[in-house]
Amino acid sequence: MSPFITSPFISEAQFTQFQQDGALCLRNVIPAETLQSLTEALPQAIAAAGPHHFKFGNPEEKGGFFGDVLVWQRVPAFRDFVWTGPLSHVAGALMHSRTVTFYHDFLLIKEGGTSKRTPWHQDQSYWCVDGSQALTVWMPLDEIPLETSLEFVRGSHLWNTLYEAVPFDSASRFNGSRDNRPAVPDIDAARADHEILKWALKPGDCLVFHCRTLHAAPGNINPNRSRRVLSTCWAGDDARYMEIKSDLAPPVKGDNLVAGGPLTCATFPQILPAPTAA
């Protein structure tokens, strides 16, 4: 038996595609009852928003952009999903890892009628995580048409560059410049030079992308359609805690972690293999 995590949703061809492209669309991964449970828990999640949540918007527009992290620590349905859902196995299989640590979740709601874009960025730029075995799963709770879906620069995870973390809003006090990393390239000014990947999605589908894949998302200007997404971030065998000078997102450093040491702790729990009871 292979010591590496496997998933029935990941074939050898999909693994190869992920390694080459840095992003992958998976269909019908999340059961309908799980989606219903998470959707029904959204009002509780928003009402119990944590200290690191944000809401951006333009005063003249109807909609806004809400985000919150570590929802799993406050809302049982989100915690159950992390521990018992299929995504830990999906992440482990695509990272080709023997272990899977859950780094954090990120609830992202773009209400109908907001032009607020998500800028081009890499997730790892915001993290206290070193290593190459780390990824994000972007899972919609609503149908996502192509024009409002996440988009990726194909193969950008292979550029061997960790870019500066950028704020999601011009009014944000987030500072990602203290580590003297290079600025994110102006992808929109040179789109013809890159292959841009994007997919329309339905609830149950998800996008998986490497922690260094450049990605962005447009606003949600349709006033009658929300874009509610749960992102979950996962780490594998080579992930290590890393001290950085820039602001973190989420601004959480775990529990008594040591630079260069394992990432796993109470805040960033190991999901696979399941820890044995003491």
Rank of each mutant, 00 (worst) to 15 (best):
D105P: 11
F106S: 10
L107A: 09
I109T: 06
I109Y: 04
T114D: 04
S115A: 13
P119A: 01
H121S: 04
Q122L: 05
C128D: 14
C128E: 09
V129W: 02
V129F: 03
Q133H: 06
L135M: 12
W138Q: 04
P140I: 04
L141F: 12
P145W: 05
E147Q: 14
E147Y: 05
E151R: 15
F152M: 04
F152T: 00
F152R: 01
V153D: 00
V153S: 04
V153N: 01
R154S: 13
L158W: 01
L158I: 03
W159I: 04
T161V: 15
Y163V: 07
F168Y: 13
D169T: 05
S170G: 14
S170Y: 09
A171F: 11
S172T: 11
S172V: 11
S172K: 11
N175C: 14
G176R: 07
N180S: 14
D186Y: 11
D186M: 08
I187G: 02
A192L: 12
I196S: 12
I196Q: 10
A200K: 10
L201K: 04
K202D: 14
G204C: 10
C206Q: 07
F209D: 00
F209E: 02
F209T: 02
H210K: 03
A216V: 03
P218C: 06
I221R: 13
P223W: 10
R227Q: 04
R227V: 07
L230H: 05
S231I: 02
T232G: 00
W234K: 05
